[in-house]
Design a protein around this nucleic acid. Sequence first.
DNA 1: CTCCTTTCTTACCGCTCGGTAAGTTAGCTT
DNA 2: AAGCTAACTTACCGAGCGGTAAGAAAGGAG
Lengths: 181, 181
Amino acid sequence: MLEVATEVFCERGYAGASMNEIASRCGVTKPMLYLYFDSKERLYLACVTFVGDGLIAAIEKSVASAASPIEQVLATAAGLFSYAEQRDRAWWGVIYSETMPADSAVAEATIGYRDRIFAIINRAALAVLPDPLDAEIASHALIGAGESLLRWWVGRPEESAADLNERLARIVGPLLASIAP
Amino acid sequence: MLEVATEVFCERGYAGASMNEIASRCGVTKPMLYLYFDSKERLYLACVTFVGDGLIAAIEKSVASAASPIEQVLATAAGLFSYAEQRDRAWWGVIYSETMPADSAVAEATIGYRDRIFAIINRAALAVLPDPLDAEIASHALIGAGESLLRWWVGRPEESAADLNERLARIVGPLLASIAP
DNA sequence: CTCCTTTCTTACCGCTCGGTAAGTTAGCTT
DNA sequence: AAGCTAACTTACCGAGCGGTAAGAAAGGAG
């Protein structure tokens, strides 16, 4: 049920998704949705924590086995790809999207998850870039690169996560190795 | 008028923006909007070409004076920042947003502009990465990094475009120099 | 068979949306 | 002054939204 709702929210955005469509794609009717989730916002919130918790878990698990900062960055991407491959390649969008109402509990929740991912990346970046603002900028750029890769990946089902990881390591590995041996 | 509409679309997304709000923030009433632009979709389309043309022009102008592939990538970012600083830091979102209806003329138009920017980056990437898929992946990652930086920059008015360019050159310059002397 | 509880649907409410028809204002021409 | 044109607003329409009330269906207990 949460999975279907997440799918629809990713396809149409918060404002564009209708409770009727979510309900019918779940095989139930609208009042049933409102029985389990009190409102559209709370349903979206449930999707956010559903995806966010899984995403964070996958990333933390992947990063735990990485030693150097460079490996940690690549491991973050690998965790992201692993979650996307295992669950759904589009679901990350429920966290990284700008379609929900600002200044709401939902927005706060997504910001919370984004901050946690940012903290992971930024810790690695700070180990390489001493200037905090440099590290912050680099972290945001890295996260944006990940987002963009994921979006691209949604339309490329034939590429596997392993393939993507291998390519990433091949492309950015030599670059980063030059700065942090 | 287009500027106000672009602002509202960026703030609320396509579905979330209402023609009433756009009209009143323009100082006119809704039927006036429909006199000049036939429908909501055509209004959005007008915003897309308005922003897209300016963005492409700024990027092409900036890239024209760049020789090496690395300089071209940095110049693309510089062009983006220059447009954002000169016009509005949030407007790029009208091109890079997922809130408009799929399979519409609007979606096609934004894809057109994104493709043109992609082509600029990808040409530079291909000069460094011989494998086409490698270059494609790198290009998407670079564009995503740019998107993310712009989004971050919106909330950091105190940083200037020049400052950002300088930091970018300092951070990624040494990295890229190691692969393409 | 009857009653009661739980589960789900039909049918609706108020509201806002995109979009439009009809009328009002203002200025210009003669 | 009278008439015409252009610019603009008021007031509305049907549709779809989020959300809910009230009743139908189903099953177990006595």
